[in-house]
Design a protein around this nucleic acid. Structure first.
Length: 741
DNA sequence: TATCATTTACTTTTT
DNA sequence: GTAAATGATA
């Protein structure tokens, strides 16, 4: 194995194969190259068998890339025996083999976040808890946090004994787990949690994998959770041949359970850790690196490192201030067109990055206007579309009829006259008998409290599922899907409706069939269960990367990618760093935002543009902007302002306080008025309109529906009015006729 | 029970 | 601004 092309640090990281190794790999320092070379070195020079290697990544994409590159490095290597996979698919593989030892069904289904919400709602109903007080989303994030930290419901309850709300959530957690098990389902967090549990409880299983995985490598280690950390630790316990690669400065998934301490304290957790820092950057110009280094140096909690490059200084970072998001987008489109022409760059050299998906729209519009082709990454995912989820629910029920959540989703889709009342009755019966809904459906005839009509529909449904179940064992998945769409009448229903929307849905379903066909071609195991697993664990949409298009994505999504020209947009307080207005951010949240900014800057190879606006409309509300504090952290010698920045706009303590006050006041008004009433106060198509400028704070007005009131607040296009009879209401002045008194 | 109107939420999301 | 969830009505 020739290691001469590596730099000294990279070479050290490759050659130090035994014992714990921490590789701190800065952005663009060639870490994938180091990892693949290391695997090749293990096999070629150290005689390690492929079966003894475990390489863990976070994305399927990274796993595939790594496997391909190992194959390139050692042609003919038998990489099939090597486990190069994501945490989740690695765990599924382990669990499918042995989860029955801890009381689960080996043919479990995997629930996505949508299913989780449905299940939590069911649990809330059963516990008679309000979903207003216990918002399903926040309940799930609490449960997910608990699982990431390896707390079972009992432990979770014990920790939060003094906290009433949290201890109620612990009860929900307990029921939630119970229901998952009864449905033969695991959620994403369970995949990790249950594997750790399996290893803890079944020594035999643990020993098997311990002796198999003699060399373990973990990529993106800064993103591991406590549970993932524990999983690796327990596997590596004996041989200690564990190599983790990561960059604490690129830890941007703290909100998803990633525990940055895992990487910061790796040296404490293992004995005799060999640490290698990869600081030479092969990606960006020195100016871009200087900017990135300076910004990130404002973080306190980090391992010191400084990226350097042999590349030339390069272009200054250009900063553009626009009036609003439309102008910002136009600037981006114009600049792309100009630079593409000037430097003869293909469109795929450009990326437009933003903090929130909602920003994409205006950019899309501008690119469309300029006829610049683009690809959007992220947003609503393919598998989250209603029709796809319905279809997947059918497939799941076929594979595992115990899956109540999926069954309830499709029992009346398309409508077959099994209404809410009937379902409720069946559910009651199921929980009484501690059985699955499907088993109640099967002997529905013995059920007297259900109408004959409903009973007929139900046995029709049971017949359909029964037939499909029989077919499923012999048909390939693509054929099975066609059968499902056909026999359930799902496709018919869509075809009857001639709307554009339905045509889109039909196209999506066809797309799903071709995904199934592709699956059949690429996999040795072609059964339904394997297909469903792959659907659950894959979210990447096949964006045609071959094409010459500009890339639009969030900064999160851009991690690990690089582009010659990058636009970082919306560099404004409140948007980046983002804040949820009411609650101001704490230091660690700001540090994570700053790391995100670091990730964004370091995506650029040659040119970087940063854009911001004077005022921005987001979610239908227009607010004045203040420059992001990260702009102030850029070294002056690295930047060039394309237009003059106004003083009020720059980030400073004083300006920030003004914004803060404004935001608080704004939030107060919104809360008060929306809490006070549920009555709609918007009237469209009004004949005449009162000139809005005439209305001032304290004005007496007459509203056609609510009568006389006083204006107590005005924000954006919303007027909040205290009515004499109806209480406080928020009214959109653009759509309402108000008579000034 | 189905459909329409109205309200509500809305950061990021590798699996 | 907008999709999805909820609530009111036929």
């Amino acid at each position: 194995m020739n290691l001469d092309t590596l730099n000294p640090a990279q070479r050290e990281a490759v050659e130090k194969t035994d014992g714990p190794v921490l590789i701190l790999a800065g952005a663009g320092s060639g870490k994938t190259r180091v990892l693949t070379t290391r695997i090749a070195h293990l096999m070629e020079d150290k005689g390690v068998q492929a079966t003894n290697i475990l390489a863990i990544t976070f994305t399927n994409k990274a796993a595939n890339e790594m496997r391909e590159r190992v194959e390139e490095t050692i042609p003919g290597a038998n990489t099939k025996e090597m486990w190069i996979s994501t945490f989740h698919s690695c765990c599924v593989r382990i669990l499918r083999k042995d989860i029955n030892r801890i009381g689960y069904n080996r043919s479990f289904v995997i629930y996505d976040s949508g299913d989780q919400i449905t299940l939590v709602k069911d649990c809330l109903k059963e516990l008679n808890l309000s979903d207003k007080v216990f918002e399903p989303k926040s309940v799930i994030s609490a449960i997910s946090g608990a699982k990431d930290k390896l707390y079972n419901p009992k432990q979770f309850k014990a920790i939060h004994l003094s906290d009433n709300r949290m201890s109620k959530i612990a009860d929900i957690y307990a029921l939630y787990q119970d229901r998952l098990k009864r449905n033969s389902a695991l959620d994403f967090d369970d995949l990790i949690y249950k594997t750790v549990e399996l290893f803890k409880e079944e020594k035999e299983v643990l020993d098997f994998y311990r002796s198999r995985f003699k060399y373990i490598m973990v990529d993106e280690y800064q993103d591991t959770s406590k549970a993932q950390y524990e999983l690796i630790k327990v596997l590596a316990k004996e041989h200690q041949n564990i190599c983790v690669v990561g960059d604490d400065d690129q830890s941007i998934y703290g909100w998803r359970g990633a525990d940055i301490r895992n990487i910061l304290e790796f040296e404490k957790d293992y004995d005799d850790v060999h640490t290698v820092k990869l600081e030479q950057n092969y990606r960006s110009t020195q100016i871009i690196l200087d900017a990135a280094n300076t910004v990130i140096s404002n973080n306190i909690e980090r391992k010191r490192k400084k990226l350097w490059s042999e590349k030339k200084e390069g272009e200054l970072i250009k900063i553009q201030l626009s009036d609003n998001e439309v102008d910002e987008a136009d600037f981006i489109a114009d600049t792309i067109a100009r630079v593409a022409r000037r430097d003869r760059r293909p469109y795929k050299d450009f990326a437009v990055l933003y903090r929130a998906n909602a920003q994409a729209r205006s950019i899309e519009d501008a690119l469309n206007r300029s006829q610049i082709p683009y690809n959007i990454y992220g947003g609503t995912k393919f598998y989250e579309r209603k029709e796809i989820k319905d279809l997947v629910a059918y497939l799941r029920v076929i594979q595992n009829p115990q899956d109540d959540i999926s069954l309830k989703r499709i029992i009346n889709v398309p409508r077959r006259g099994i209404g809410l009342r009937t379902i409720e009755k069946i559910e009651d019966r199921a929980s009484l008998k501690q059985e699955s809904i499907y088993s109640v459906l099967i002997d529905i005839d013995t059920n007297s409290d259900i109408s004959t009509k409903a009973r007929a529909s139900i046995s029709g449904f049971v017949d359909i599922i029964g037939t499909l179940r029989t077919i499923s064992t012999v048909y390939p998945v693509s054929k099975l899907i066609e059968k499902v769409l056909d026999t359930t009448g799902y496709l018919d229903e869509l075809e009857k409706d001639k709307s554009e929307d339905s045509q889109d849905r039909i196209d999506n379903l066809k797309e799903f069939i071709s995904i199934a066909l592709e699956f059949e071609q690429n996999n040795e195991e072609k059964d339904l269960q394997t297909f469903l697993t792959s659907v659950a664990l894959t979210s990447e949409q096949s964006n045609d990367e071959e094409n010459d298009k500009v890339s639009l994505m969030t900064i999160h999504t851009s991690k690990g990618l690089e582009f010659p020209v990058v636009f970082l947009t919306g560099m404004e307080e409140g948007l980046f760093p983002i804040s949820r207005a009411v609650r101001s951010m704490n230091d660690s949240e700001i540090e994570e935002e700053r790391r995100l900014c670091y990730v964004g800057i370091t995506r650029a190879k040659e040119e970087l543009f940063m854009t911001l606006t004077k005022k921005r409309t987001l979610y239908g509300k227009t607010n004045p902007s203040i420059a992001s504090r990260f702009m102030e952290e850029l070294p002056l010698e690295c930047i060039e302002k394309l237009n003059k920045m106004e003083k009020e706009l720059t980030y400073s303590k004083a300006n920030y306080n003004i914004l803060d006050k404004y935001t608080k006041k704004y939030m107060n008004n919104v809360n008060k008025s929306t809490v006070a009433t549920n009555v709609k106060a918007t009237i469209k198509d009004s004949q005449k309109e009162t000139d809005i400028d005439d209305i001032k704070l304290g004005s007496k007005v007459h509203h056609p529906k609510f009568g006389i009131g006083t204006v107590v607040a005005m924000v954006g296009t919303d007027v909040t009015i205290a009515f004499d009879q109806q209480g406080i209401k928020k009214i959109n002045k653009e759509y309402t006729t108000l008579d000034l008194l």
